Lab assay of single mutants.
Amino acid sequence: ENVVSAPMPGKVLRVLVRVGDRVRVGQGLLVLEAMKMENEIPSPRDGVVKRILVKEGEIVDTGQPLIELG
């Protein structure tokens, strides 16, 4: 699984990683606000951040690609 998608609609509050960062399974990639709750979106696997597909403040839909892992 190379693309991390939004599990719910919401607003991207914070991106916690940068392109080139090594991440571990379960590590927070970004914080999504949904229904006034902050939800940290975890990495599904170990890898390297290849691309960040959203910006802070952006509104996303369920299933929208957020981050690509390499």
Score class of each variant (00 low, 15 high):
29 L>S: 13
69 L>V: 13
50 K>E: 11
28 G>H: 08
30 L>K: 00
24 R>K: 05
38 E>F: 06
7 P>R: 06
62 T>S: 10
68 E>A: 03
24 R>L: 05
6 A>Q: 06
2 N>H: 13
4 V>F: 04
67 I>C: 00
50 K>S: 07
54 V>L: 14
33 E>A: 02
2 N>L: 15
54 V>R: 14
9 P>S: 14
58 E>T: 09
11 K>F: 10
69 L>N: 15
56 E>R: 04
20 G>Y: 03
2 N>E: 14
26 G>M: 11
57 G>A: 05
28 G>Y: 13
52 I>S: 11
27 Q>D: 11
42 P>N: 08
57 G>P: 04
52 I>W: 09
69 L>Q: 12
66 L>W: 02
39 N>V: 12
8 M>L: 12
13 L>P: 08
63 G>N: 03
19 V>D: 14
46 D>C: 00
10 G>N: 12
33 E>K: 13
33 E>L: 15
38 E>Q: 04
43 S>F: 12
9 P>T: 06
3 V>C: 01
51 R>K: 02
32 L>R: 01
18 R>I: 10
55 K>S: 07
36 K>C: 01
23 V>K: 07
58 E>K: 13
10 G>A: 13
57 G>D: 06
56 E>N: 04
12 V>F: 06
50 K>C: 01
19 V>Q: 03
16 L>R: 10
56 E>H: 09
18 R>A: 06
14 R>T: 08
65 P>C: 01
62 T>P: 12
49 V>E: 00
37 M>K: 05
68 E>D: 12
63 G>M: 02
11 K>M: 08
59 I>E: 02
41 I>F: 13
49 V>W: 00
48 V>I: 10
56 E>D: 11
57 G>C: 01
63 G>F: 15
3 V>S: 14
58 E>M: 04
33 E>W: 14
31 V>P: 00
21 D>N: 03
55 K>L: 13
27 Q>E: 13
29 L>C: 00
28 G>S: 12
16 L>S: 13
14 R>Q: 06
18 R>F: 15
57 G>L: 13
67 I>F: 07
18 R>K: 12
23 V>F: 06
66 L>A: 13
49 V>C: 00
64 Q>Y: 07
70 G>S: 14
19 V>P: 09
1 E>I: 02
38 E>H: 14
43 S>P: 01
56 E>A: 08
36 K>P: 05
67 I>K: 00
66 L>E: 00
15 V>S: 10
2 N>Y: 02
26 G>Y: 14
41 I>T: 15
39 N>P: 12
53 L>H: 09
51 R>A: 09
55 K>Y: 04
68 E>Q: 02
45 R>P: 01
20 G>D: 14
31 V>K: 09
61 D>M: 15
18 R>H: 02
59 I>F: 07
20 G>I: 04
4 V>L: 02
12 V>W: 00
64 Q>L: 08
60 V>S: 03
40 E>R: 01
55 K>C: 01
64 Q>N: 12
27 Q>L: 06
62 T>M: 05
56 E>I: 09
9 P>W: 08
64 Q>M: 07
10 G>P: 00
63 G>L: 09
16 L>V: 13
60 V>L: 05
35 M>L: 04
38 E>C: 01
40 E>L: 11
65 P>G: 11
1 E>V: 11
19 V>A: 15
25 V>D: 15
41 I>L: 13
62 T>Q: 06
19 V>I: 15
20 G>H: 11
21 D>G: 05
2 N>D: 14
43 S>M: 11
54 V>A: 05
47 G>M: 15
35 M>F: 14
8 M>I: 14
43 S>E: 00
34 A>K: 07
28 G>W: 07
19 V>T: 12
53 L>D: 05
39 N>D: 10
47 G>Y: 08
58 E>C: 01
30 L>W: 09
70 G>C: 01
31 V>Y: 05
22 R>G: 14
29 L>D: 00
5 S>G: 06
68 E>G: 02
30 L>C: 00
68 E>L: 05
37 M>V: 05
18 R>V: 13
34 A>G: 11
58 E>S: 14
27 Q>C: 01
41 I>K: 02
17 V>D: 15
45 R>F: 02
